[in-house]
């Protein structure tokens, strides 16, 4: 297999890539419309969430249609954006919370809630499992004959890209724990999963310095640029994820501190109704029990 074959879809965006990019941009427009609707209704929905979602959608679309650099480097840029950066940005925008808040047809809403509260959903967002699906998939892709097969079959290539995106989304979703699903995993399991996934990602990236993915012949300079990009790009996203966890921990500590310092009134204090996006309030409009006893702790 020659270098030219390496990324046949990378030379010009194929129809599937254009379709996926269009879908990403449409999702961003849909998000903006839904958020505007919430604001008109009087809900507080911070603008930075809009910015995150739009940035995620645009990054995804851009990565799908214009990969720069040599073939392997181009692939890595795409991998980073599709599997890590875009999913994180999308998850930070709390899309599920938004969808559950906009007026939906009743059956659609009920179906969505059923999925979000289902047992499998609770297990899927188990952080170590999400990490395994995400980084384990990468090891399978690059260190088995799958990589060579992907370049023979466009359909398989598309499926792998969908998996990379979906697994990245699941991992960011599980680690950030911003949207309401059945199970709420604790800080320890989320932090440990992040550590494990980060280490596996770093080892894989570093191994490219010495050996290209199985069954391919990649120019050395291209391979090394790709390896560096994967290593340091992964670092940046890991730091961002760690900052999300750290800010959550700090904010929770701040709330506890504020409670302790407040003079104790005889009746329980009514919390302000301002929706900050946290789950401090017992239930919200979503009709979702937001605190199903933090069993994961």
């Amino acid at each position: 297999m020659t270098v030219e074959h390496l990324h046949s879809t990378g030379t010009g965006p194929g129809p599937a890539a254009v379709l996926a990019a269009t879908a990403a941009l449409s999702a961003a427009v849909g998000y903006l419309l839904a958020a505007a609707r919430l604001r008109r209704r009087g809900d507080v929905w911070p603008r930075r969430r809009d910015a995150c979602f739009v940035a995620g959608g645009v990054a995804l679309a851009a990565a799908l249609v214009t990969p720069p650099g040599g073939p392997f480097t181009a692939h890595m840029v795409r991998h980073l954006v599709v599997g890590m950066v875009a999913p994180l940005l999308l998850v930070l925008a709390r899309p599920l919370t938004l969808v559950l808040r906009v007026p939906l047809p009743r059956p659609a809403r009920r179906a969505l809630l059923r999925v979000a509260h289902s047992r499998p959903a609770g297990w899927l967002v188990c952080p170590p499992l999400a990490a395994l699906l995400d980084v384990g998939g990468l090891w399978l892709l690059y260190r088995t004959p799958l990589w060579a097969a992907v370049h023979e079959r466009p359909l398989l290539d598309a499926a792998v890209h969908v998996h990379v995106f979906a697994a990245g989304l699941l991992f960011s979703f599980a680690v950030c724990r911003l949207d309401p699903v059945r199970r709420r995993w604790g800080l320890f399991s989320r932090g440990t999963a992040l550590l494990g996934a980060g280490a596996a990602h770093a080892v894989l990236a570093k191994s490219f310095w010495a050996a290209p993915p199985l069954g391919t012949d990649v120019a050395t300079a291209d391979l090394r640029t790709g390896a560096l990009l994967m290593y340091y790009g992964g670092d940046l996203v890991e730091i961002a994820l760690a900052v999300v966890l750290a800010v959550q921990w700090y904010a929770a500590g701040g709330r506890a501190l504020a409670r302790d310092r407040r003079p104790r009134p005889s009746s329980p204090v009514r919390r302000s109704a301002r929706v900050t996006g946290g789950y401090a309030q017992g239930t919200t409009r979503e009709g979702v029990a937001q605190r199903p006893a933090e069993a994961g702790r």
């Binding site: 932090g191 992040l194 550590l195 980060g198 280490a199 596996a200 990602h201 770093a202 080892v203 570093k206 191994s207 670092d235 890991e238 730091i239 760690a242 900052v243 966890l245 750290a246 800010v247 921990w249 700090y250 500590g253």
Partner: peptide, 24 residues
């Protein structure tokens, strides 16, 4: 290589964790 990957990620997380604990 494995130890290095783990250590490198731990350092990154350690920087974030250290600063947030300091702020606390």
């Amino acid at each position: 290589l494995l130890a290095d990957g783990l250590l490198h990620t731990a350092e990154l997380l350690g920087l974030v964790v250290g600063f947030v604990l300091y702020a606390d």
